[in-house]
Amino acid sequence: MRTDAELRGELLAELGRLRQAVPEITGCLVASTDGLLIADDAQALVVEGVAALAAACLGVSQRIADSAGHDEFREVLIRSSGGYVAMYMAGHGAVLVLLAAADANVGLLHHEARRATAVLSRVVADAVLSFSQGLPEPARW
């Protein structure tokens, strides 16, 4: 079983790899679908607020997908005058949030992010398993 520090190190390494692969990324983070920050590689950004808003956006996006008769929600891209915010499901309990400059290559951003979600999904699943194995047995009456 890997330690929390090792798991967090894997998440940060993948976020760093993403930033190298797509230089226009200005910040990235992994959050729980409940809006709690798990890991980040973002400077000058209120990451806790972004994590919470990402969870809200995912909830609305999933409801839209459901209403349209589509299966599981996977990703959303927001384009603004200042750049992009892209969110990708990373397993069942986490989301990858990427912030990118307005001149970002969106195709490359999607390609690298989709590859990264496979890695992040595995690490988050390992962390959940590690956490659940460390819980005490429930009292039996």
Score class of each variant (00 low, 15 high):
A102H: 12
D71A: 14
E112L: 08
E137C: 02
L77V: 13
I25G: 03
E10F: 14
A21L: 14
L45G: 04
G35C: 08
G93T: 07
R8E: 12
P138C: 07
Q43F: 08
L29Q: 06
D34P: 00
M87I: 13
R74D: 10
D40R: 09
L18S: 02
L7P: 02
C28M: 11
L45K: 07
R115C: 06
D41W: 06
Q62I: 01
V46R: 15
E6H: 13
A102S: 14
L29H: 04
L53R: 07
L120K: 03
E137S: 14
R122G: 01
S80K: 08
Y88G: 01
Q43S: 14
H70V: 00
L99D: 01
G59A: 08
T117Y: 05
A113T: 01
A102V: 14
L37M: 06
C57D: 13
S81G: 14
E10P: 02
A52V: 08
L15D: 03
L36F: 08
I25R: 02
A68L: 15
C28R: 03
F73E: 09
D4K: 11
L109Q: 08
R74C: 00
I38V: 15
G9E: 15
A127H: 06
C57F: 09
M1Y: 03
V22R: 03
V60L: 15
V128W: 02
R140Y: 07
I38A: 07
A21P: 05
V119E: 12
M87W: 00
E24D: 13
F131V: 04
R122T: 11
M89L: 14
R74A: 09
D4R: 10
V47E: 10
A65L: 02
R79D: 12
S121W: 08
P23F: 11
M89P: 00
I64A: 13
R140S: 14
T33R: 15
L99T: 09
R114Q: 13
L135A: 12
A127W: 13
D103C: 02
N105W: 01
I64Y: 09
R17L: 09
M1K: 07
A125I: 03
V124Y: 03
G49F: 03
S130M: 13
A100P: 04
G35A: 12
A94C: 09
L135F: 10
A39Y: 06
S130W: 07
V47W: 06
H92Q: 12
G16N: 13
L96Q: 07
I25P: 04
V76W: 06
L109F: 10
A102D: 13
A55T: 01
A118K: 15
L58K: 08
G134L: 12
A56T: 15
S67L: 08
